[in-house]
Design a protein around this nucleic acid. Structure first.
Length: 297
DNA sequence: AAGTGAACCTGAAGGC
DNA sequence: TGCCTTCAGGTTCACT
């Protein structure tokens, strides 16, 4: 489920339980996910206190009191679920628990908080494309996964000029450039399709074609930057609001309650006012692209 | 260098 | 009902 907004939603869900909590015990139920777990994974976590629950692009980061950071990626199907040990801290938790196949519960963190409440945080990942890494204070910058990441698509740093400079001279399709985590870190297939639709730009257009002269923006780059920031901000907002529902009722994180303009809407009429086009599905570098050829140029 | 396709793995959904 | 194929939010690697 995880592009940046979903990972941020997960972060916000974990923070109130994990930040400040002591990791009493860790259950690691298999030797690997996508990669083998780090050496002495359990031993290095048990007894530590979580100082911060952070996020970089699609990675969650748990900073511990000894300077170690647990870096976690959800892959395609990873999720965390929180359960109060007393059983009644989270109303409706039973329903949520039942909705998951516990055969894919791979890691369980047993936590205690300063107020003496006890919790478990369980990592579930059917496809096992997720992974966990440990990095010491000096290693964190050299962790390969994080080292090459581009700018976050949130906030004012991502503007037309920045996009123009990032994409200048690139002949790769705009879609591929936006998915390239080395340029912008955190976008995935859904939000790239959505942002391109909002900006009225074709996914097939050369990335460099929206660039202006060095240090200058263009109206296309401005539109795209606005669309990206808007889509991401709204998705985080939606995830944040659905997180409360998720606590009460089921395991969905708003993803499925989200209505997209083009993603997974093949054959439907384009929803841009005045546009008569239909949403088309195509394949770019092995992944589905959804766009309206009539209004996305 | 840039682009594509396959690989990793399980489960859901659709066609017949 | 069941069997088969296709597809899925990500990343990485091998090839042309």
């Amino acid at each position: 489920m995880p592009e940046l907004p979903e990972v941020e939603t997960v972060r916000r869900g974990l923070e109130p339980v994990m930040a400040g909590a002591r990791i009493q015990r860790v259950e690691q139920r298999r030797p690997d996910l996508r990669f083998p777990f780090p050496e002495r994974f359990i031993e290095r976590l048990q007894g530590r206190t979580v100082r911060e629950v952070g996020r970089r692009a699609k990675y969650l980061t748990l900073l511990l009191d000894d300077g170690l950071t647990l870096i976690s990626h959800l892959g395609m199907s990873g999720s965390f679920r929180i359960e109060g040990a007393a059983g009644d801290e989270l109303p409706g938790q039973y329903h949520y628990e039942r909705s998951k196949n516990q055969a894919h519960d791979h890691v369980v963190f047993h936590l205690t908080r300063p107020d003496d409440t006890s919790w478990t945080v369980t990592f579930n990942d059917p496809r096992r494309f997720g992974f966990m890494l440990l990095a010491g204070p000096d290693e964190i910058v050299s962790i390969k996964a994080l080292a090459g990441l581009g700018m976050e698509p949130t906030g004012n740093a991502l503007n037309g000029e920045a996009l123009s400079d990032l994409f200048r001279g690139r002949r790769t399709p705009l879609k591929a450039a936006l998915l390239d985590q080395r340029l912008i870190a955190g976008l995935g297939n859904i939000y790239v399709c959505e942002a391109l639709w909002r900006a009225g730009l074709s996914p097939m257009r050369e990335a460099g074609s929206i660039a202006g002269r060095p240090g200058r923006s263009t109206s296309r780059a401005d539109r795209l930057a606005d669309a990206i920031r808007g889509v991401i901000a709204e998705a985080i907002e939606a995830g944040g609001s659905s997180l409360r529902d998720h606590m009460k009722t089921d395991g969905s994180l708003g993803y499925f309650q989200h209505s997209f303009s083009v993603y997974d809407r093949e054959g439907e009429p384009c929803s841009r006012p005045g546009c008569r086009g239909l949403v088309r599905r195509s394949v770019q570098s092995g992944r589905s692209t959804f766009h309206c050829a009539s209004c996305q140029r």
